[in-house]
Design a protein around this nucleic acid. Structure first.
Lengths: 146, 146
DNA sequence: TGACACTATTTGTACATACAACTACATTCA
DNA sequence: TGAATGTAGTTGTATGTACAAATAGTGTCA
């Protein structure tokens, strides 16, 4: 019994289900690799962003990673509690800045070899063409964001 | 002040942060479009899979979408409670099958125009090359899974 | 300068997601 | 045929995620 035309089209062509599927698959590969370190890819992504661009406000990190401000707020709390991030007051009394701590940098150093191995696994899953295409798309997005 | 070499490399090249960022962006675009229907893209993805491939067991849906079986179990509960999916007993006493209901099909029909508009938005965000690359990658994955 | 609008963050709530542990049934094989 | 092993589903728990509302500070302008 064949599904209705609309259903067939949505099943065959939907971009969202494909991106979301790859997201789950890739998140799982990363989290498996990171399990010995007691950290997940969501947190590592934030640590790397702050280590690279910090000191930086939560608002700027959230925009950069296309994360809701409230999500980042709670994720950052965990990273601060773990001693990987720290906060400093800022000129704007509503805000503050985030910075990576020495312990946070040390964690990223320990993770680096696993990250390299993970990149290989992800490239094997996605294929070189898709890796390049996604990289280009996100670089364009970031360029537009300034 | 420049970040350490490892951090710079992870910030510039990490595949995972890019896929995960696009996932959040795309999920938000879809959920915004679906809000008037009181349903989210995660649920629509499951409804379409069941409508297209059902009757089908929860286990098969979860494998197809690369979802944990426990995630699917709870998502399906909500869809059943909403009247969009129904269950039937199966030969295997451990399992059962899921099927789309007439109300579920009717919902997908109502969503279809919004889905078409959403595909355009997503293609504009990702670019045609990335859409094609992701489609190819996921089609390959599904082909391997049988 | 004081009211109003704007911005940054946090908190309440709900859904999405996964892992581990548990239950129930099926399969295998000695 | 019965014990061991494997498979399907559910439930407990924790994280990730977003929206709405609340809080608090900034900026503007009449």
């Amino acid at each position: 019994m064949t599904a209705p035309t609309h259903v067939r089209q949505m099943a065959r062509e939907c971009i969202a289900v494909r991106v979301r599927l790859l997201n789950r698959l890739i998140t799982k590969v990363c989290d498996d690799g990171l399990r010995p370190f007691g950290v997940r890819v969501a947190q590592v992504n934030i640590l790397v962003a702050v280590a690279h661009d910090g000191p930086i406000t939560p608002n700027e990190v959230a925009k950069r990673l296309v994360l809701d401000k409230s999500t980042l707020s709670r994720d950052a709390d965990k990273l601060i509690a773990s001693g990987w991030l720290a906060t400093d007051p800022s000129d704007d009394g509503r805000s503050h800045t985030l910075r990576i701590t020495p312990a946070g940098l040390e964690l990223l150093d320990r993770i680096h070899p696993v990250w390299v191995a993970g990149q290989k696994k992800l490239a094997a899953i996605l294929g070189a063409g898709t890796v390049g295409a996604i990289g280009g798309t996100v670089n364009d997005l970031w360029a537009k964001m300034g």
